[in-house]
């Protein structure tokens, strides 16, 4: 029994030493708590998360970055908002009702022609009509909350004070889709404008058209209808030489009605 007690004491002393060393022999670093998960629960969102949501929309679903980037030169860069907005609000050709950066940004997204930056107007309109679509409609369909998150992102990335408030009402949550089935478009030209096709492709419907995607003015000589349909439904299936994948929104299959899709395919196949 004496031996047993000695062995137990020895073992406990050993464990005690290891415990002591782990607690006092080395510094105790308290690791950072797990990072907050980004959830689309607006009520629980911090402003940083809200702005991060805006950033994702800006780069992704909102398709803003397709034109507002330094490469294509399709639309003004958004890196000096703090400086330019006050001068724009006082400009002669300003037709809107905005009074500060936040309302100006909101307005520019839903009624983009209220102010057209020189050189960025729709071709042939002498900078009176903006080519930018209404972000609440068409293929983009941002909710009020999502527009606000984009504003938050823009204000943050410009180093401005974030003035938007995170909407609290659940109905403003991004998932809500209050609009019922829309009326089909009557002409391809309407669709080209509404879905902002001309922002990237040359389609021969306006004077100045984009070159982010392939020139489609004579596409009917090169591609058959199957290829064109596939390119609309699954843009990354074939990437024309010299162009980047993932530039075209992949969800036109959900956006377009079947009749509209066939109209566009017919139209494109006929461009010779």
């Amino acid at each position: 029994m004496k031996i047993f007690a000695a062995v137990i004491l020895f073992s406990l002393a050993t464990i005690g030493f290891f415990t002591w060393f782990s607690n006092f022999g080395i510094p105790q670093v308290t690791p950072a708590p797990p990072p907050k998960e980004e959830v689309l629960d607006l009520g629980a969102m911090t402003m940083d998360q809200f702005a991060a949501l805006g950033e994702r929309i800006f780069n992704g679903r909102g398709t803003c970055k397709l034109c507002h980037n330094p490469v294509g030169g399709r639309a003004p860069l958004l890196d000096k908002i703090g400086e330019v907005v006050p001068t724009r609000l006082n400009a002669e050709n300003y037709k809107g009702k905005a009074s500060d950066v936040e309302s100006y940004l909101y307005e520019s997204m839903v009624d983009s022609s209220a102010y057209v930056v020189a050189g960025f107007g729709k071709a042939g309109t002498n900078d009176t009509v903006s080519p930018m679509p209404n972000v609440t409609g068409g293929s983009i369909k941002l909710s009020d909350a999502e527009i606000k998150s984009v504003i938050a992102y823009l204000q943050k990335s410009n180093g401005l004070e974030i003035t938007v408030e995170i909407p609290k009402d659940a109905e403003a949550a991004p998932e809500t889709d209050e609009a019922g089935p829309r009326e089909p478009f009557a002409t391809v030209e309407d669709m080209f404008t509404e879905f902002a096709c001309v922002g990237c492709h040359k389609l021969g419907v306006g004077e100045e058209e984009g070159d982010i995607g392939p020139d489609l003015r004579q596409i009917g000589t090169l591609r058959d209808r199957d290829y064109l349909r596939r390119s609309l439904l699954d843009p990354n299936a074939d990437i024309a030489k010299g162009f980047e994948p993932d530039a075209m929104p992949p969800d036109y299959g959900q956006q377009l009605y079947a009749v509209e899709l066939e109209m566009i395919v017919d139209h494109l196949a006929g461009l010779k």
Binding site: T19, S22, P34
Partner: peptide, 21 residues
């Protein structure tokens, strides 16, 4: 879900070792 300090982990290990013994 948080990561505890090493001292805390060591204490749990020590308790475990004693139960094991």
């Amino acid at each position: 879900a948080f990561t505890p300090t090493l001292g805390y982990a060591a204490n749990v290990v020590s308790v475990g070792t004693m139960i094991f013994m």
